[in-house]
């Protein structure tokens, strides 16, 4: 259950940023190389939001694949995990993206529609 702390950080950050009494949806970005397991976040989410403005909110998780660059031949690579080996045989791949752990947006309930 190591995603509990992460999920708590997510919920804290949302509660810091949002003043509306009710959040109905949360959109998270969890990169494939972040080391965070989306299913575990989902499991922890229900526990962490109990009694907060996020209780009952829908959780949408986007999981972008990573990208990298081979330090030996400069080729660009798509990374599904940390264990990438370049076509040229080199394991020396610089990770360019895929470690995202970001709160993209929330849907909040309010009496008025934003302009």
């Amino acid at each position: 259950m190591h995603e509990l702390g992460i999920t708590q950080s997510v919920v804290d950050a949302v509660l810091d940023a949002v003043t509306e009494p009710r959040v109905t949806r949360l959109e998270l970005e969890i990169g494939k190389l972040s080391g965070v397991v989306p299913d575990s976040v989902r499991f922890c989410f229900d526990l962490v939001v109990t009694g907060t403005a996020l209780e009952g909110a829908r959780l949408d998780i986007v999981t972008p694949t990573g990208s990298g660059r081979c330090r030996d031949c400069d080729q660009r690579l798509v990374l599904e995990d940390q264990l990438a080996v370049c076509d040229c045989g080199s394991p020396d791949v610089e990770v360019l993206s895929g470690r995202e752990l970001r709160i993209r947006a929330v849907d909040v309930e309010s009496g008025t529609v934003a302009s």
């Binding site: 992460i6 950080s9 997510v10 950050a13 949302v14 940023a17 949002v18 009710r22 109905t24 949806r25 752990l101 970001r102 709160i103 993209r104 947006a105 929330v106 849907d107 909040v108 309930e109 309010s110 009496g111 008025t112 529609v113 934003a114």
Partner: peptide, 17 residues
């Protein structure tokens, strides 16, 4: 959804910031 009106708020925050 439900009783009120929902609107999207872009946050774009790093969780570990």
């Amino acid at each position: 959804e439900q009783d009120g009106v929902t609107r999207r708020v872009e946050l774009e925050r790093e969780v570990l910031a």
